[in-house]
Design a protein around this nucleic acid. Sequence first.
DNA 1: AGTGTTTCCTATCGTTCGTTACGAAACTCT
DNA 2: AGAGTTTCGTAACGAACGATAGGAAACACT
Lengths: 207, 207
Amino acid sequence: MKESTSPLLRKTGRPLSFDRDAALHQAMLLFWRHGYEATSLSDLTAAMGVTSPSIYAAYGDKKRLFLSAVERYVGGPVTARSIIDDAATARDAAANLLQASVIGFTGADTPPGCLLASSAISCSAAAADVQAELASIRRSIEAHLRLRIEHAVEIGEMPASIDTVALAGHIMAVIQGLSTLARDGATREKLLRVASAAMAAWPDSSA
Amino acid sequence: MKESTSPLLRKTGRPLSFDRDAALHQAMLLFWRHGYEATSLSDLTAAMGVTSPSIYAAYGDKKRLFLSAVERYVGGPVTARSIIDDAATARDAAANLLQASVIGFTGADTPPGCLLASSAISCSAAAADVQAELASIRRSIEAHLRLRIEHAVEIGEMPASIDTVALAGHIMAVIQGLSTLARDGATREKLLRVASAAMAAWPDSSA
DNA sequence: AGTGTTTCCTATCGTTCGTTACGAAACTCT
DNA sequence: AGAGTTTCGTAACGAACGATAGGAAACACT
C-alpha cells in the first residue's frame, strides 16, 4: 500500500529526467498539426525528446496521451465556456467567441486551425471513441452558447422569435469553418473580416 | 505500339470481371466516411470486392485511387461551380450552395458531411500533397463564389461597400462547419435552419 | 489446337505501426 | 555500504500497413 504522500515531492526512486508538462505541450502541437491517428509514436518521441517506454510510463498509451493533450488544449485560463459566461450580452458572447477563435487559429507559434476541429474529424473505426469524445466537447460548447442565447431571450435582451438552435449552430459552424480556412492558409486579418461578416447574421435586438 | 482502338470495346485479353465504376463508388464512400489515410487497403478490398493487385492494376496506387474518388465526388452533374453560375443572383448562389451542401451532407445512403471537408483535414507529412489538392479545390470554389459576388457588385446588384472576400469566406466557412455539424449528428432539418440563419448575414441590396 | 494478350488471385515483400520485457541507472532511506 | 524504489534506455514483439512478383485463367485471333 502507498502512503498518502504529496505527489509533488517524491521521496524515493530515480528522479524524473524530463519535464512532463513541456513534453505534453510538444505532443499537443504535433496532434494539433497532424491529427490523432496521423501522428505516430516515433513522431512523438522525436518531438518530445523521450523514448516510447517513458511516454507509456508517464501518460499511458497513445489514446490517453492524446486525451491529455486535448485537456491541455481546452484547459487554458480562458475557455469557450468562460468567454460565453463573461460576455455582457449574447451577441458579445458570439462575437468574442469568434474573435478568440480567429486569434487561437492563427497563432505564430502554434499550428493553424483548431485542434478540436481538425485532429479527429475522420478516422478509422479503432479511433471512434476519440472522435466521439471531441464531438462531445464541440456539442457541449454549442449547447452552452445556445443556453446563453436562450437566457438572453428570457431576459428580453433578444426577441423571442429567433431560432436559438440555428443561431448557436451558425456560430459553431463558422468556428469550425474558420479552422479549415486557417489551415488552407488564410491570414488572421482575413479571418477577422470573415468573423465580422458572420456576425452580420446576428438578429437585431429590436424585433 | 498500340493501335488507337476504342477503349470501350476491347478486342483481346481476359475480360474485366468487376465494374470499375461501381468499385470506385464503394471506395469513394469509404474515403468519405473514414478519410484518406485512415482507410486501409484491406478496408478497400473488402468494400470493393476486389483483391489489392486488381486495385493497383485498375486505378494505380492508393493516392491515385483517392484522387479518382475525389474526381467522382466533385464531378457529378451538378457541381459547386454550376450552382454558382446558374443562380440568378449572387445571393441565390450563396443560398443554393448552402442548401445543396446540407442536402449532400445528410444523404440517406452516403456518409454524413463533406468528403472535401473531412477526408484530408489532418494527415501525415506523407499525404501533404493530397491535403494540398483538396485545399486547392476548396479555394477554387471560394474564389469562384467571390468572383460571382464581385460581378454582382459591378452590375449594381449589390452595394460596392461590401467586403467580397469576407462574404465569400463566410459562406465557405459555414459550408465546412455544416459538414462537421452533420458528422456530429445534426439532422438535415437543423442544418437547413443553420443555413438559413447564415444567410441572414447577407447584406441588404439597398445600401 | 495453339499463340498472344490482358486480367485475375495467391502469396509475399519490406516497412512501420503501437506496445512492452527487461535490465541498468539514479535517487532515498536504513 | 547496502537495500528498496522508481525511471531510464535498449531491444524486440506481433500485427497491420502499402505495394508487388509471378503464374494461372479467360478471352480473341490464327
